[in-house]
Design a protein around this nucleic acid. Sequence first.
DNA 1: CGTTTCTTGTACCGTTCGGTAAAGACTTTC
DNA 2: GAAAGTCTTTACCGAACGGTACAAGAAACG
Lengths: 185, 185
Amino acid sequence: MARTVAERSDALPALGECFREHGYEGASLALIGEATGLGKGSLYHFFPGGKAEMAAAVLAEIDGWFEREIFAPLREADPPGPGITHMFEATETYFRSGRRVCLVGGFALSDARDRFGAAVKDYFARWIDALSAALLRAGWERKASRAAAEDVVGGIQGAIVLARSLDDPRAFTGMLARMRERLMS
Amino acid sequence: MARTVAERSDALPALGECFREHGYEGASLALIGEATGLGKGSLYHFFPGGKAEMAAAVLAEIDGWFEREIFAPLREADPPGPGITHMFEATETYFRSGRRVCLVGGFALSDARDRFGAAVKDYFARWIDALSAALLRAGWERKASRAAAEDVVGGIQGAIVLARSLDDPRAFTGMLARMRERLMS
DNA sequence: CGTTTCTTGTACCGTTCGGTAAAGACTTTC
DNA sequence: GAAAGTCTTTACCGAACGGTACAAGAAACG
């Protein structure tokens, strides 16, 4: 019947959610087909490289979103304060207060890291660099800004783990609020 | 030939390492057999419940180790300072400066959480409680001690994600050193 | 020594895995 | 309206999955 989904990018959000919830290995083609509403034929039409290409496309889309919505504002906001504030707010929304897992962080802990190591490394390195640059412009010392950026970017990942483990989004919002206070005071 | 492995507990370390490296889903019986040196016959003899029982046994062993080596010292050390110092040192050794993944944290991010949610929640809740109690005895206010304990326990998980992502153990050791300084100063 | 209990290797089960092939159905283009 | 290109359905493949059955081998015990 050819439902003319038309764009492969239309499938990316559902694809991303599927990888998020089940991990790279756990996201079977059956689950992916269910999540996207696409059969194997369509999936392999859009992603001839199979699961690996699907995951790579999702990673690229996520990378683009963060670059646009978080990294660039961090680098460019003048004064830098609002860029940092926006990072915390956008992060909290994006991860739905810890109810939504970070796909990149999840990949980092699984053996999907071997396959997508470069993308994973790049994502976190650029986040830390962008935040560190913002702190630098806000008057922080070089070493202190780098350390604080690592603390915050790492802390966000830890906050997700904690909120999911305790089954309590307040663990996420609490940690973020305290990190924010530590940066802005 | 019946190599008389004798104790099912002898297989737990290798079993744990296998789940750590590949996750619950990714650890196939073939990989598990390879890691433990045991055939399916032996594995199902010791763990009639299959993979789920193996993972539960590993979680129980990990829980016991942390209770003995970290939680109890945190609760009992008098003065509390050395108990906290010991926690940081033991944690750094156990996770091999972030080269070794936290199995419980990994489960929390995957859909293994649905299966082992209670054990995962308990592990983190008891860690936070024990650390919080130590800080309380060290003179911290109740709310501040709880917040700091969440920051540190979550921060450790984030440090593992970061070190693995950046492929740099210094991200782990650095974050831990700064959290330690924040607690002890 | 023989017997019982514990441990193991092997063959096998049905299911699901990622991936392929090819024909059909719809759109677009001229 | 036919030809070309795009998208989807369906059936299928070999391999690997988790799990079971069972008989043979080693240990322990009388």
